[in-house]
Structures are given as structure tokens and as C-alpha cells.
């Protein structure tokens, strides 16, 4: 009798609900830090580069080789050219 009751109840509930994308991510992200709205200011400070990270950005870089050449010629100064795989001011 108990078994029959459980079976009927299970059938009435239908198939198990699919997890939402957020639930799926949560379940497979065990161990990842939790992102909560109340912590967003702390996350901003944690994620953004600090002053030492951004010392290079205090230099007024022209964004291209040719722009740098033109500026060097105008200002009568030597050109310091920084080259990397990926733009040095972006993703390298």
C-alpha cells in the first residue's frame, strides 16, 4: 500500500525539473568563490589593477607605431616603442 502511494505521488509530480542555467553553473562550480550583490564593491577592488599594476599606464603611450613616430618627429625626441604579442596596452 505504501509503495503504491509513493508510486502515484511520483507519477503526479511528473519528470524532474531541469535545472536553470544558474543552478547548473552553481552545481558545477563547487569551490568557486561566491559572487553576491552585497560584495560587489569588494569584488571591484579585488579585481581591478592597483597603482603598481598600472604604473605603465602613467606613460602617455601613443596607441600605434606610426602615431609614435609622428609624435617623436614633432617633439624632436627619440621614440620608445613597446611591442608585444597582443597590444601591450590590451591583452598580451
Amino acid at each position: 500500500m505504501l509503495l503504491a502511494t509513493l508510486l502515484v505521488a511520483a507519477l503526479q509530480q511528473g519528470p524532474p525539473a531541469q535545472p536553470t542555467p544558474a543552478e547548473a553553473a552553481q552545481s558545477s562550480q563547487a569551490g568557486a568563490p561566491q559572487l553576491r550583490r552585497v560584495d560587489l564593491e569588494d569584488w571591484r577592488e579585488h579585481l581591478l589593477p592597483d597603482a603598481a599594476d598600472l604604473r605603465f599606464a602613467r606613460i602617455p603611450w601613443e596607441p600605434t607605431f606610426l602615431d609614435g613616430v609622428r609624435r617623436a618627429s614633432e617633439e624632436q625626441r627619440p621614440l620608445l616603442l613597446w611591442l608585444m604579442n597582443g597590444h601591450p596596452l590590451g591583452c598580451t
Binding site: 604604473r55 605603465f56 603611450w61 617623436a72 596596452l89
Partner: peptide, 20 residues
């Protein structure tokens, strides 16, 4: 690389950065 000394030295140059 970009210590304070290197940043100060860079002031003598026109500086540019680009993708190699």
C-alpha cells in the same frame, strides 16, 4: 619592468605601444 625609475626615464622619449 615598469618601476618608478623606468617610468621616469620614459619621460625623455615619445612613447608608443603596438602589436608586434
Amino acid at each position: 619592468v615598469f618601476t618608478e625609475e623606468v617610468v621616469q626615464r620614459a619621460a625623455s622619449f615619445a612613447c608608443a605601444a603596438d602589436e608586434v
